[in-house]
Amino acid sequence: MAETMKDYEAELEASFKKIEEGDIITGTVISVDEKEVILDLKYYAEGIIPAEDYSREPDFNLKEEVHPGDEVSATVVKRDDGHGNILLSRVEATDVLSWDKLKELKATGEVINVVVKGVVNGGAVAYVEGVRGFIPASKLALSYVEDTNEYLNKPIQVQVIDVNKEDKKLILSAKEILRKKAEEERKNKISNLEVGFVTEGTVESLQTYGAFVDLGNGLSGLVHISQICEKRIKKPSEVLAVGDKVKVKVTAIKDGKLSLSIKEASDMMAKEIEEEIFEVPDSGEQATTSLGSLFANIKLN
C-alpha cells in the first residue's frame, strides 16, 4: 500500500511547531554518554541535555540511569546551542512538573522504589521524580533507626507522606509499607496454626490480666491469668517472669489474635508422661518417668 502525505501528518505538523525558550517539551532518547543526552524531538533539530542539567541526584550516572527509547521532558534553555541543536534542561522541567506528580503519588499512596543517596541528622535522603526527599529516622523502619549510615546506597521502598511545593519539601516514609507487610506475614503465619497446637514460647511482657508470650516468627499471643497454672493467682508475676521459656497450647484464634494456655499445655504433657513407659536396660524392669523430674525445668510457680 502506497504511503501518502496523510501518513506523515503528525510528524509534518510537529516539524512546523514553534519552540520557544521556557517551553517544556518531551522527546525520545536517541543516545546517551557521560556528558549529555540527545533527544529526538520530532523537530528539525535535536535536543541536547548536558549531564549537569539532567539530575540533581548525587553521583547520578547518565549511562546507567538513562537509555535509548526513554521519554524525557525538559525545558528549552536555548533554541540554538551554537551547533544547531536545542539546549534543554531536565532539572528545570523537574522543578515545574515533578511537584504535581508528587502530589498525585501522595494521594494514591503508590509504593516507590528509591535508593538512599545520603544520610543526615535524624534521617536519610532519597530522590523521587528528581526531587530531594527526606526520610525521618522514625520512618525508615518499624522502629527508630539509630544508625542511618547502614541505609546509605541501599534500595528501599517508600511512600510520599507530605509534599509542599512552595517550601520545596518532600517527606517520605517506609514505615507504613513495612507495617503492612509485617501484618500480612503475621496473618499468613496465624492461618497456618490450628487450635490445639502446642509449642514453646518466651514470656515477653506481664500484664495484670495475663502474660504475652512470643512464639517466634513474629507471632505472639495472650495467656489469660486463669490459664497460667492450676492454682489461683492474683497476678502473673507470682509464677512468671519476663524471659521465661514456657510450653503453651493454642486455645483460640480470633480476629488475627492468639489465645494461649500454659495450664492446658502442662496438662497434656503430664498425661503423655503418665502414659509413657520405658524399659530399664540393665534390670529389664519397666518404670514410669518421674513427673517431677521432667517438669523440673519448666517454671510454673
Rank of each mutant, 00 (worst) to 15 (best):
A2Q: 12
E3C: 10
K6A: 14
D7T: 12
F16V: 09
K18L: 03
I19C: 01
I19H: 01
E21R: 04
G22S: 06
D23M: 03
I25R: 01
I30S: 01
S31E: 12
S31W: 02
S31I: 15
V32Y: 00
D33L: 05
E34V: 08
V37L: 02
D40W: 05
Y43P: 12
Y43A: 12
A45C: 11
E46A: 02
E46M: 04
P50V: 03
E52A: 14
S55M: 09
S55V: 06
P58T: 07
P58D: 07
F60M: 07
L62A: 04
K63I: 15
K63E: 13
K63M: 15
E64Y: 10
E64V: 13
E65W: 02
V66R: 00
V66D: 04
V66N: 00
G69I: 11
V72L: 04
K78G: 04
H83Y: 15
N85M: 07
L87D: 01
L88H: 04
S89Q: 09
S89C: 08
V91P: 00
E92K: 12
D95K: 10
L97Q: 01
L97P: 07
W99C: 03
A107K: 08
I112F: 00
V114Q: 07
V116T: 07
G118L: 02
G122P: 04
G122H: 02
G123D: 03
V128E: 12
G130H: 08
G130I: 11
G133F: 01
G133I: 00
I135H: 02
S138D: 10
K139Y: 13
L140R: 00
L142F: 04
T148H: 01
I156Y: 05
Q159E: 15
V160F: 11
V163F: 10
V163C: 14
N164R: 12
E166D: 09
D167L: 08
I171P: 06
E183Q: 06
E183P: 00
N188D: 11
S191G: 07
G196P: 13
G196H: 10
E200D: 06
V203D: 10
E204Q: 08
Q207D: 13
T208W: 13
T208H: 12
F212S: 08
L215P: 02
G218C: 06
S220T: 09
G221F: 15
L222N: 13
I225K: 13
R232W: 15
K234H: 14
P236D: 08
S237E: 14
E238G: 09
V239A: 09
V242L: 10
K245R: 04
K247F: 07
V250G: 11
G256K: 10
L258Y: 14
S259R: 07
L260D: 13
E264I: 15
A265V: 05
E272Q: 06
E272R: 03
E274V: 09
E274Y: 15
E275K: 05
E279G: 13
E279M: 14
P281K: 10
D282G: 09
E285K: 04
L291Q: 08
G292F: 09
G292Y: 12
S293D: 15
A296S: 13
I298C: 11
K299R: 15
N301E: 07
